[in-house]
Design a protein around this nucleic acid. Sequence first.
DNA 1: GAAGCCGGTTGATCTGCATCAATGCGATGC
DNA 2: GCATCGCATTGATGCAGATCAACCGGCTTC
Lengths: 247, 247
Amino acid sequence: MNAPSKSIAPNCSDCPIRHRAVCARCEGEELERLEEIKYYRSFEAGQTIIWSNDKMDFVGSVVSGVASLTQAMEDGRTQMVGLLLPSDFVGRPGREGSAYDVTATTDVVMCCFRKKPFEKMMRETPHISHRLLEMTLDELDAAREWMLVLGRKTAREKIASLLSIIARRDPAQVAQPASKAVAFDLPLTREAMADYLGLTLETVSRQVSALKRDGVIVLEGKRHVVVPDMDRLLEEAGDDSDGGHLI
Amino acid sequence: MNAPSKSIAPNCSDCPIRHRAVCARCEGEELERLEEIKYYRSFEAGQTIIWSNDKMDFVGSVVSGVASLTQAMEDGRTQMVGLLLPSDFVGRPGREGSAYDVTATTDVVMCCFRKKPFEKMMRETPHISHRLLEMTLDELDAAREWMLVLGRKTAREKIASLLSIIARRDPAQVAQPASKAVAFDLPLTREAMADYLGLTLETVSRQVSALKRDGVIVLEGKRHVVVPDMDRLLEEAGDDSDGGHLI
DNA sequence: GAAGCCGGTTGATCTGCATCAATGCGATGC
DNA sequence: GCATCGCATTGATGCAGATCAACCGGCTTC
C-alpha cells in the first residue's frame, strides 16, 4: 500500500497541490532537486500515518483525502488537534519526532520528501523556509481559533463551526466560492467529529439532527451535506458572517 | 509609560532573555544591527498591548511580567489562546495585523524590534528565520496541547494543568529544576484563569479551594502558591509524570 | 471612618452534555 | 436469506459545571 503510485502527478509541476505546497515558488534546477527527493505514499482509511514519538524521516503534504492529528491521555481520552485536508503540510522540519498521532480518516495520498535532503534544501533555499514559517503561522492561527471553539462554544455552535470549515475547504467550493448554497461530503465519522469537537458521538448525532430539523442543513444519506444558506450556518457557528480565517 | 526604559539591559548582550530570544545566536555586526532597531516598552497591568486587527509595526519578546492573547466572540464570550511569559515572542513576521488582542495581565516590559528592518534582517540572516520557525513550532505544540486541556479535561484537571505550566515556567524553578516542592506567585486573576481554561471564575475558585483542601497545593494569601509535591500536581493534571512539553 | 470597588469565596439551583442502553440500517460474508 | 458488523440514531437518567446571588476582606477615596 505504501509503494509510490506513479499514476499520480509524476512530477512537481503537475502536482495537484503545487500551488499551495512548499514547492510553490520553485523552478528550474530547484524543482529538479525537489523531484529527486519526492515520492508518493497511499494510506487506507483508518491506517496510522505516523505514531507520536516516532522518528519521522519525511515531511509532506496531503494530496487527496483527509488525515487527522490526535493527542491521547493515558486513560484513553483523545482529542483531535488538527485536520489535514488536501494541500496541508505534515512534518516538523528540524525536529526529530512527531508530537501527535497522524491517522488517515479516509483513503489518503501524500506527497512526501525525505527529511534530511529536504532540510538541506531548506537551508539553501530561503523562500522554502519562508514558506514554511508562513504555513506554520497559519496553522497556529487555526489552532488558536479552534481553542475558542473548544473552550467557549456550545455543542450546536461547535458542529456548525466544523461544518463551515469543511465546507470552506472543500475543493468544489474553492472552485466556486461566491454561491450561498454549498454541498459536500463529510469526510469524518460521528466519532471523529466528536473527537475534534470535544464532545461525545451521541451529542454530535443529536446536534446534527437538530440542525437538520431546523433546516440549517439538509442530509442526503449520512454523509452528504447540503447547506442551503452558508451565512445561516456561519451565524449558527457564532462567527461573524465572513467566517473567520480558519485554515 | 511607553518610553524606552534604559534601566533595563542597554544592549542585546545584557538582555535577560537573550538566551531564548531571536538574537540568541547573533554576534558582532549582526548584533549591532539588532541593537539599532531594538527598543524597550513598558505596560501597566490591564493595558492593551495590541488590538486584534491593529497594524503591528513591531515584533518582540516579553522581558518581564505576563501578557495574554485573547480571542472574543461578538456576544462577549472570550477565550485566552496563549499566555506570554518572559522570553516568549510576540509578532507575526511577514503578516500585517494581529489575529488576537494582546493584554498585559501584570506590569510588562517588552523588548521590541521595529518590524520592517527586522524583516529585512530575517531575510538576510538565515538563522534568525530558522529560530523563528522553531519558536513558532513550539507555540503550535503548546496550542495543540492546550486543545486537549480545553476539550477533554475536567475542571480540576484544567486547574492543575495551568498551575503546572506556570510552575514549570517560573524563573525561580527554572533555576532549580530538581526539587519536588515548588512555590510561585500566580500572575493571573481567577477570571483570567477561567478565560484561559474555558471555565467560569466561580468554578476556578471552587476547584482551587478543592486542591487546597486536598493538600495538593498550599495557598499563602490569594496569589502565592506552594506545591509540596510537583509529581502529585502533574498527576492531578492527568499528564504523564514528566509533565508533557507545554511551553 | 463611611462608602465604594475589586477580587475572591461560597451557597442554591438549573441545565447542557455525558453516560448508559436499546434500536435501526446498510454493507459484507457465508 | 440470515448473521454479523460498523456506524448512526434515539431515549432515559445523572452529574459537572454554569448561573444567579449573597457576602467577605483589603484597598482607595473623600
